[in-house]
Simulated assay, not measured.
Amino acid sequence: MGSKSDGYGLSDKKGSGKIEVPKINFLPQKPRSYNPKIGLIGAGGISDYHLKNYKLMGLDVVAIANRTLSKAVALRDKYYPKAKVYDDYQELLNLDHIEVVDITPHPEDRLPIIKEALRSNKHVLSQKPFVLDLDEGRGLVQMAKERGLKLAVNQNGRWAPHFSYMREAIKTGIIGRPVSVDFSLQWDQTWIENLPAFEDLYHMVLFDFAIHWFDIAVCFMQGQDPKSIYASAIKYDGQKYSPPALASCIINYDQAQVRMAFNAHTLLGEEDVTTIVGTKGTLRSRGPGLNDQPTMEIFTEKGMARVPLEGCWFKNGFQGTMGELLLSIEEDRAPSNSAENNLKSLELCFAAIESANHNRVAIPGQVMKYEPNRS
């Protein structure tokens, strides 16, 4: 065995100096002049964050539809007092002056609404997860293309400050090609106890939550195709809710690997860490939660920098998704959060759930549907 003097197992401390913080444009963008009339369909809890941030952006929401009209009225009065309210979404879609609709209901209810919105010649921002069947998703993508419409997905995690900075930094080549990505999250999600929408969702972690991490993994690993995936989900005695609180996943590429570890029942000492190691450097973000990642670090051969981050997930994220859709309409290009792009994220998610359900390796792209229950 070597001694400490041999330097066995010790780094030579390359890049231990300080460098200037690289200028990376990671904040949400919005159009220069395009500000269309927007309609919101679905006034559930998440819609509050949508409208709060649209108001901050100066966007023009003119109509809100929800089958329980009182919910639409409450949101209208809180954010857009002049907006019209409807209990039938078709009435909203019949309004010719509305160009963009934000559709927030759950996937089963959302699919026919998206179809009707496209038939009504509206650009669409769909809530995540986009669809539960890849073929249905591809059909919607084709339908939008045939009508010359933009169809985007509200994968708002892409604009969380730390994820957005990392995504854009990778594009500059500052850390070279990513060879490993590690997500390690320990958080307290016991607030879902006795809430049927979550208690009845077996893969609450891998599906409802981790969809954001599958999505950002696709962004980080752009240009590299996943070859296989292995995932697991574990429930333990003493949990306060029914779905497994522990989950993990390994995604293999030809020359890279993405690893995810989740504990959604961390009552003390919550932490969220993301580390991306590339061929030329490393990016790392650490904080007590996904909405609280105040700084991140960049390590290169020239040295390291601590990057102050502006904003938070629940602000930047919701501004980023709609802002990118509107900007893509103004510039007549595909949005970076297009439904077509998001299908790659769903391929990872569906394959991970297939793997966890059957305790075997799955191939992304070969699992076409979301399988909710363990076989």
Rank of each mutant, 00 (worst) to 15 (best):
Y80R: 04
K37D: 12
I19W: 02
K52A: 15
H50N: 13
N66V: 03
S126L: 11
I98E: 00
T68P: 05
E108L: 07
L92S: 11
S47T: 09
D88W: 00
Y34D: 03
R32K: 07
D87I: 07
L56G: 07
K14F: 12
Q90F: 11
H106F: 09
D48S: 11
N25C: 04
H123P: 11
A72S: 12
K84S: 14
A43G: 00
L51Q: 01
Q127G: 11
L40P: 08
G45C: 06
E20F: 00
K55I: 03
H97K: 05
V61M: 01
I46S: 08
R32M: 05
D6S: 11
G9I: 07
E116Q: 12
L56Q: 14
K115S: 11
Y8P: 00
L134D: 10
Y49W: 13
K128D: 09
S120W: 07
K115L: 07
P112H: 08
L51C: 05
L132H: 06
N66K: 02
L56F: 06
L10Y: 13
V100N: 06
L51V: 06
D48F: 14
Q29C: 05
D87E: 10
L134A: 08
F26W: 14
L95Q: 15
P112Q: 07
P36F: 02
V100K: 00
L132T: 12
H106Y: 13
K71T: 12
K52Q: 15
Q127N: 15
P22F: 10
P36N: 02
N94W: 07
K13I: 10
I19S: 08
G42E: 01
I24D: 00
L118E: 09
L95H: 06
L93G: 10
I113A: 09
N53R: 03
G42Q: 02
P81T: 00
N53Y: 03
K115N: 08
V131C: 01
L95E: 14
L56M: 14
V62K: 01
V100M: 07
L125N: 12
G9R: 13
P105L: 02
K13E: 14
N53G: 02
L56K: 15
S70Y: 14
Y8V: 10
Y79E: 01
A65V: 04
Q127L: 02
F26R: 13
V101D: 02
D96V: 07
A43S: 09
S11E: 14
